[in-house]
Amino acid sequence: MIAKWIKFQILDTERQDWTRGYNTARQYFERESSLDVPYEHTEGAYPLGRWLSDQRRSYRAGTMSSTRADELEELGMIWDTADAQFAENLAAARAYHAQAGTLAAPRHATALDKPVGQWLTNLRRPGGLGKDPERAQRRAEQLAAIDPDWNPGQLGWTVDWQRHYTGLRVLLAAGGTLDEILPGVTYRGDDIGRWLARQVRDWARLNPEQQHRLGEAGVKPAARPQKTAARNNTKTGATKGSDAFTRGVVALAQYIRREGKTVVGRQHVEELPDGTSVRLGIFLTNQKSRRDRLTDHQLTALANLGYHWAQ
């Protein structure tokens, strides 16, 4: 009699409770296609979130039967909610990589309605993959399976550098040439041409692996100008002034060709393909104020660009 009482009052009641919870979970999954249920969520009056939490606790403690575990797994049970959230963001990371070819996403980037850029930024921080070493290692391997260079800081360069380098590779793979990738040529909003000019100019500042990767793409450092001894200070000053004027005219021609006008704001700075910056507004003002000291060649160069005061 005692055995029967235990069977009907305890075992059967527990079985009925589990069946009710399972059926409620199944109905929720059929509607939401997920069992990522908040702890406080109720289905009608049934505390589904708490029931699922109890099942996870039983599973971790080893007191759940294999039959019940199998039934819940077939239903889509999420045993670890932290890993479930990571898996959702990882899916968004795959979607972003499929579009951009890299996981060096800017912070504002999104994919599958997930803030994947900020998520990746958080993961790259110390301890961002979690305190559990095994879990952190597993997550790092999952990210590396998508993009081996997902964390450029470990390689010695920034996320920004990695993203621009990827843009360069994509443009070259699409049939572009290095001669065509000039400032103003962009990929997904990044000016790859301007970035490339800086790499050529500042080659010595790159680490060996960066130089190697750029070299494989055909990029070479800028040729170092040969140094010649100046005969006298006057000639050296004149040469420097002539070079500055030439750069100014080149920048001015580039600006006019792009903007279709000769008026330049005083604070405007123009970037040349070699990465040189020219304070174009100030350059133009200076030439106009000292036009009586310009050579005929210099005046002609300015007049040919449309500046009547140089004629």
Rank of each mutant, 00 (worst) to 15 (best):
I2R: 14
A3K: 06
A3V: 07
K4C: 03
W5I: 11
K7E: 15
F8S: 09
I10M: 12
D12C: 10
Q16V: 01
D17K: 15
T19N: 04
R20N: 10
T24C: 04
E30V: 03
R31C: 03
E32C: 04
E32I: 02
S33H: 09
P47C: 11
G49L: 13
R50K: 12
R50Y: 02
L52D: 05
D54Q: 14
R57I: 06
S58M: 08
S58D: 05
G62A: 12
T63P: 04
T63Q: 12
S66F: 03
T67C: 00
D70W: 03
L72Q: 04
L72E: 05
E73V: 09
E73S: 15
I78P: 00
D80N: 14
A84W: 00
A87H: 01
E88D: 13
L90V: 11
A91E: 13
A95D: 09
A95R: 02
A100K: 02
G101S: 14
L103R: 02
P106T: 06
R107S: 08
K114N: 00
V116Q: 03
G117T: 05
T121Q: 01
T121N: 03
R124D: 04
P126S: 07
P126N: 04
G130N: 08
G130T: 02
K131H: 06
P133E: 02
A136L: 11
A136S: 15
R138T: 12
R139N: 07
A140N: 11
L143H: 05
L143A: 06
A144Y: 08
D147V: 14
D147E: 09
P148K: 14
D149M: 13
P152L: 03
T158I: 09
T158L: 15
V159W: 01
Q162F: 00
T166F: 00
L168E: 11
V170H: 10
A173V: 01
G176P: 06
G176V: 09
T177F: 09
T177I: 05
E180Q: 15
E180P: 02
P183H: 12
G184I: 13
G184W: 07
V185L: 05
V185W: 06
V185H: 06
G189S: 09
G189V: 03
D190Q: 13
I192L: 02
G193I: 06
R194L: 11
R194W: 07
W195E: 09
L196M: 08
D202S: 01
N207V: 11
P208T: 11
Q210C: 06
Q210V: 04
Q211A: 08
G215E: 12
E216F: 11
Q226L: 13
Q226E: 13
T228A: 10
T228F: 07
R231Q: 11
T236P: 00
T236M: 14
K240T: 07
R247Y: 12
G248D: 14
G248C: 09
V250F: 13
A253V: 09
Q254N: 14
R257T: 11
R257G: 14
E259V: 11
G260K: 09
G260R: 12
T262S: 11
T262M: 06
V264H: 10
R266S: 10
R266Q: 10
E270M: 02
E271A: 03
L272P: 02
T276Y: 01
S277A: 14
L280G: 10
F283Y: 15
Q287W: 09
R291N: 12
R291E: 15
D296I: 02
Q298F: 03
L299P: 00
T300Q: 07
A301F: 02
A303N: 15
N304R: 04
N304V: 00
L305A: 13
Y307Q: 02
W309L: 03
